[in-house]
């Protein structure tokens, strides 16, 4: 086995699971998420020579996946608009506790422009600058979106628990 193949297979084993989770939250479908990860690694293999530093591999793979998603599947949508109709088919083996179900539902209802950086921050552990590079926006935009994402999630959850009555958050826009 040559060096590139060893390097490539190490990347697959290290990052395929987390990339799958990111892909799932991008597209909301298990099979499509797996296709997306598969295509990401196909493209990564072809471009492996351009990856000078393996420490950058993780962010590089996320960037490839995000671009592949945009290329293949993303349809133009008005920025920061609620997608009430968005439906994520429930994968098997999901956490069925009521808190988890409510939170998952709220997360699915977040506009993609908010959910995407939030997933990269919470699940990927990326900084605002790194997320900005993956998404092609400024770090300030990222931080604004994750702020609004958390606030909106909180509002959605409060709405679920109080049957639609929202509680204001002191001091927040």
């Amino acid at each position: 086995m040559d060096g590139d193949t060893i390097r490539f297979e190490a990347m697959v084993r290290a990052f395929s699971a987390e990339l799958y989770r990111y892909a799932y939250w991008l597209c909301g479908h298990r099979a499509q998420a797996e296709d997306l990860v598969q295509e990401t690694f196909t493209r990564a293999w072809r471009a492996l020579g351009s990856l000078a530093d393996d420490r950058a591999a993780r962010r590089w793979l996320y960037t490839i996946l995000r671009r592949e998603w945009a290329r293949q599947f993303e349809k133009p949508e008005p920025e920061l608009t609620d997608l009430d109709g968005l439906h994520y088919p429930a994968p098997v083996d999901l956490d069925t506790r009521i808190e988890a179900v409510l939170l998952r539902s709220a997360l699915e209802r977040l506009p993609a422009a908010y959910r995407d950086p939030l997933v990269l921050q919470v699940l990927g552990g990326f900084t605002g600058e790194e997320i900005g590079e993956i998404l092609g926006v400024s770090a300030n935009t990222v931080m604004t979106r994750v702020f609004r994402a958390r606030k909106k999630l909180r509002d959605l959850l409060v709405g679920e628990r109080t049957g639609g009555r929202k509680e204001g958050m002191h001091g927040l826009p």
Binding site: S16, Y20, R21, R30, A100, L118
Partner: peptide, 28 residues
Amino acid sequence: VQVLEAELRRVMEVPVPDGLAARIVFQH
């Protein structure tokens, strides 16, 4: 918020299909 954050992380960690890495390596 920190309780919500921990719960959020758990919810985001959806199950990964068995054998995903092996399938990618196989295809490659």
